[in-house]
């Protein structure tokens, strides 16, 4: 799949790249500010004389880490809540669904801004806040799938032959909905990278001197007329990576869940950013 290959390249660059670049991403060489690309600095230097390539790779680590980890938080919470809710039913289901609705009603971007502005833009906080505000969609999908799967013949059959509730939940229901989870989670990574980039662009996300693609665009945009590549490079990096995750999500859906009508069960997740 081309998308997987694309992301593979991005991941490889971001993981190994920093070791191959002779500059630390935060190292300033103020004598060499805003230099165009040269052999020593293949992507030039920024306003503090920092190597743009080094920052791009380090920033990629940050952006990917935030995207992946916040997705992990969202999926964990979403799966837990969705599965519990769908399986338990009754009062527990009602309570969990109220909670889900509450979080859904919460204006995500506003909440993130509020929290980040109050407590500062540390990485763990960003991951938590983005993760904890983006789980309800997944939880709802899960719950729906659990409800649907529960009624299917093989689950009833399993129950009939005396399998325990938990066993059924894990063995059959979750396994059966794993495709939906994977597809949703993949697209979520891209969405969360966009949210992080948007926050960092506004100065509310990853704080300098730590690089992220979002704050690199913000820094670069100040000199866009003279040193346009400082904006273009991180912007393309965001686009390519998010595109990669979106395409991968689509590809996975076709692969794992080919039936047409299922396509719509993963609702839109365009980010606010």
């Amino acid at each position: 799949m081309p998308a997987a290959a694309l992301l593979g390249v991005v991941a490889l660059l971001v993981l190994i790249g920093p070791f191959a670049v002779p500059y630390a991403p935060e190292a300033q060489s103020i004598a060499e500010r805003l230099r165009p690309p040269t052999p020593a600095h293949p992507l030039g230097t920024d306003g503090f004389g920092r190597d743009v390539l080094a920052r791009l790779l380090a920033g990629g680590r940050v952006s990917l880490a935030v995207g992946l980890l916040s997705m992990a938080v969202a999926v964990s919470v979403g799966v837990l809540v969705g599965a519990l809710s769908g399986y338990a039913g009754g009062a527990a289901d009602a309570a969990l669904m109220r909670l889900t609705e509450l979080v859904m009603v919460f204006p995500t971007f506003f909440l993130i801004i509020l929290v980040v502005a109050s407590f500062g833009g540390s990485l763990p906080l960003l991951v938590l806040v983005i993760g904890l505000t983006s789980w309800p969609v997944g939880a709802r999908i899960l719950r729906g799938e659990v409800l649907r799967t529960r009624e299917r013949d093989f689950v009833t059959a399993a129950r009939a032959i005396g399998a325990t509730e938990a066993r059924i939940l894990v063995r059959h229901v979750l396994v059966n909905v794993v495709a939906v989870v994977i597809v949703s989670a993949t697209i979520r990574v891209g969405t969360n990278i966009l949210i992080e980039a948007g926050l960092s662009y506004l100065g509310l996300g990853v704080q300098p001197p730590l690089a992220s693609w979002g704050n690199m665009v913000a820094d670069g945009a100040r000199v866009i007329r003279t040193d346009w590549w400082l904006t273009l490079i991180p912007a393309v990096a965001i686009f390519v990576t998010v595109l990669g995750f979106n395409l991968l999500g689509e590809g996975l859906r076709d692969l794992l869940d080919p039936r047409e009508e299922r396509a719509r069960r993963v609702p839109p997740q365009a980010s606010a950013a």
Partner: peptide, 8 residues
């Protein structure tokens, strides 16, 4: 005006 824009 930001120092980075001074020349411009």
């Amino acid at each position: 005006v930001p120092i980075d824009n001074y020349e411009e």
